[in-house]
Design a protein around this nucleic acid. Structure first.
Ligand SMILES: [Mn+2]
Ligand SMILES: [Mn+2]
Ligand SMILES: [Zn+2]
Ligand SMILES: [Zn+2]
Lengths: 138, 138
DNA sequence: AACTTAAATAGGAATTATTCTTATTTGAAA
DNA sequence: TTTCAAATAAGAATAATTCCTATTTAAGTT
């Protein structure tokens, strides 16, 4: 369990109920888009304004507390910033999984061949998870 | 120069002036978003409707004539479908470059470690291009 | 514990993005 | 040419996002 109060204050953001609720909900969901997040939060927080959501998601992304995850053909999703990782997205059930993959060698290769300095990487593999592979066989 | 007429007809789409103009403009731009594309096309095609743009971009993406390129923090861009490639995005000048990078080994690794069948991959490296690296040194 | 105040919020208006509807046009097959 | 399903333009409708502002609140100070 992260200490959201501390995270927010370290970034010069007041630890409002709204922000803490947003962070908790994102942490719980893993990867979630604006709409689902808003609907979830409204249940226990009926006065929350949509503008507050958008403003905070932007601010917290700017401050690198959150990360925007853009998957092909989907609405932007938000996750808590944590260790660098890639995403496995299942075409069957839609599940999004975090995985670590060492790509330092590929980055080096890319930098040398193209005179390009890589500062960040974004990798998504789409396909079929274990379960959805099995279902196809039945 | 691709034969757009043929590409469209092979996909059971009429080769309309609008579609051909869209494909030409995307080919010329490389990677372009809806707004810029629309503004470009309007210059030489004043009656083109925005709805026609959206409809055709979706249809042609569905048919894999176009590819939606989602880059973190940017509007969706469209490109002509071609050989698989990764994207290098420069934080300095915004340039988007296509590069090939062999990642078969990484995909294999990922599949074996995670019981996941990879069907497609999406890789973006952000950083600094040659020119923008040099500018920083001055 | 009350006081202070800049920051943040709720609520709604405004703007922007996208999809839908329909009368008219058109590509291409016959 | 004639035919007609497919596609378009134009604009309405809807959805997504940002903006505005009076009110509230977090958190530092007394
Ligand atoms: Mn993740
Ligand atoms: Mn490309
Ligand atoms: Zn699955
Ligand atoms: Zn550059």
């Amino acid at each position: 369990m992260s200490n959201y109060q501390e995270i927010l204050q370290n970034n010069n953001l007041k630890a409002t109920h709204q922000r803490i609720a947003i962070l908790e909900a994102i942490d719980h969901a893993g990867h979630i888009d604006v709409d689902k997040l808003f609907k979830n939060l409204r249940k226990h927080f009926p006065t929350l304004a949509l503008g507050t959501m958008y403003r905070n998601l932007s601010e917290m992304s700017d401050k690198h507390i959150l990360l925007e995850v853009t998957l092909p053909g989907q609405k932007v999703k938000y996750e808590l910033k944590k260790e660098p990782h890639i995403h496995l997205v299942c075409n069957g059930c839609g599940k999004i999984e975090d995985r670590t993959l060492d790509i330092e060698d590929k980055i080096k290769e890319c930098e040398e061949e193209n005179d390009f300095t890589v500062l960040d990487s974004n990798i998504v593999f789409t396909g079929l998870c274990q379960k959805c592979q099995d279902q196809k066989k039945v």
